[in-house]
Design a protein around this nucleic acid. Structure first.
Lengths: 210, 210
DNA sequence: GTATACTTGTGAAACAATTAACAATCTATA
DNA sequence: TATAGATTGTTAATTGTTTCACAAGTATAC
C-alpha cells in the first residue's frame, strides 16, 4: 500500500469525473459500485479507475466494489473540494453572466462569491445572486477575503493585462475563457478553456476519420 | 522527410494554438517567426513546436524561421479550418445564447448557422444573428444542410437524450457543455467542456503546491 | 467447509509523448 | 568564398501514462 509521490496529471482530472459520477449515484441511492460499472458510465477503463485510486490508497472491497458514499467523500478530500471554495469572476459580459448563473459549480463546492466589471452601468446589479462590483474593488476584496481562484471572462484584448492584475492582487489560479493562451507567471496556475480550439480539434478529428 | 502515420492527440490540439498565434502575428504584420519566439508566446517548447510540425511536413527555412502567412495557411489546411464549417447549437439558455454571440469561433472559420430550443417562447427570436428554431426542425435542418458538428448546451438532465437524438440525425461531433461526461456512440466524437471540473483541478493543484 | 464467481490492487510491460543532441541548411559579412 | 551565427528537422534517449496479468481478498451456493 505504498504511495507514490508522483501522480499523473490526468489522474487528477479524472478524479473529478469520478466524483461527479459518484455523487449522481449517491443521489440515486446506489450504495455500491464496481470499477466495471464506472467504465460503462464514464468511458474510462476499469483498470484506469482502480489505478488512479491506487495512488491515494485502498478504497474498495475485493469481490464487492466501492462504497459510493465513502469513495465520494475520499475523492472530495483528495481534490480539496470537501470544503467550500470561494472564487471570483472578472468580466460580466454575456459569457460572464452565464457563468454566474451556472449551477454546475456548486456541485463541486465551488461558489462564485464576487464578480467584477469595469463598466459602471453593470456595477451594482445582481446576477446569479452576486452583486457586481467595480474593478477598483478587486484588490481590496481579494485581500480581505483571501481569495485565490478567479474566472476570467473579459474581452480578449484585456485578458493578459487583467490576468496580470489578478496575479498581482494575490490570485493563484485562473480559469481563462478569453481566446488567448495566457502564459502564467511563475507560481500561478492557468487553465485555458478554449472553446473554439476544442471545436477545431473536432473538425480535425472528423477530417482524419474519413 | 518521411511522414509518420501516427500523430499524437496533443499535437492536434496544439496546432490550434499555433494557428491562432500566427493569425495574430499576421495581423500585426509580422512576416517571419522562429520556433523560439513561439515558445515565448505560447509556453510550448520550441522543440515541441518543430516536432509537431514535422508530422506534417517541412514548413520552415533553416537559419531563418517560418513564414507566418504560409504556415498559417498550412496549419489551417491540416486542421481543416481553411474552409468554413457550419455548426449547430442546441439549447439556447444562458450559456447557449452567450455562445451564439461568442466572437471567437469565426476566427477559426467556424460559424454557428442554426440554433434550436424546445421552448416555444424562444423559437423565432434571433440571437447572435441566428434565428432560433424548434427542436422539431432538428432532423430536417441537419439533413438538408448536411451538418456534422453540434454544440450541446441543454440542461444536464436532457443532455444524454438530446445527444443521442443528434447522433441519430447524423451529427458526428459534439462539443458538450452540460456537466455530464457524455459517452459517445461508436463513430461520434465528443468533447466535454467541463468548466466545473477544470476549476476543481485548479483547486487540487493549489492544494498540492502548498 | 469447499468450490466458484467476482472484484480489487499493483508490479511489470507496453505504449505514447516529450526532450536532448546534433546534423543540415541558411544568411550575412568580411 | 570562407566563416560565424542562427535556426530547422530528426533520431535517439528519456520521461510519463496506460494496460496486462495475476495475486489476494470477498461473497455465495451447495
Amino acid at each position: 500500500m505504498e504511495r507514490t509521490t508522483y501522480i499523473p496529471q490526468e489522474t487528477a482530472r479524472r478524479l473529478s469525473l469520478y466524483l461527479r459520477m459518484l455523487r449522481r449515484l449517491r443521489q440515486e441511492k446506489v450504495r455500491i459500485v464496481s470499477s466495471d460499472q464506472i467504465r460503462r458510465f464514464l468511458n474510462v477503463s476499469s483498470v484506469q479507475f482502480r489505478k488512479d485510486l491506487s495512488y491515494f490508497g485502498e478504497f474498495g472491497k475485493r469481490g464487492v466494489g466501492y462504497d459510493v458514499e465513502l469513495l465520494a467523500k475520499e475523492i472530495g478530500k483528495i481534490l480539496g473540494t470537501d470544503i467550500l471554495h470561494e472564487i471570483i469572476l472578472v468580466g460580466v459580459g454575456r459569457l460572464g453572466s452565464a457563468l454566474l448563473e451556472y449551477p454546475g459549480f456548486l456541485e463541486f463546492n465551488l461558489k462564485i462569491s464576487a464578480a467584477f466589471d469595469s463598466n459602471t452601468r453593470k456595477v451594482g446589479k445582481v446576477c446569479g445572486g452576486v452583486r457586481i462590483q467595480h474593478m477598483r474593488q478587486l484588490r481590496q476584496v481579494i485581500r480581505k477575503r483571501n481569495l485565490r481562484i478567479a474566472i476570467l471572462s473579459v474581452p480578449v484584448e484585456f485578458a493578459q493585462e487583467v490576468a496580470e492584475e489578478l496575479v498581482d492582487c494575490g490570485i493563484k489560479a485562473i480559469l481563462n475563457f478569453a481566446p488567448v493562451n495566457l502564459v502564467p507567471a511563475r507560481d500561478v496556475f492557468v487553465s485555458n478553456a478554449d472553446m473554439a480550439s476544442e471545436l477545431e480539434s473536432l473538425v480535425y478529428k472528423l477530417k482524419q476519420k474519413k
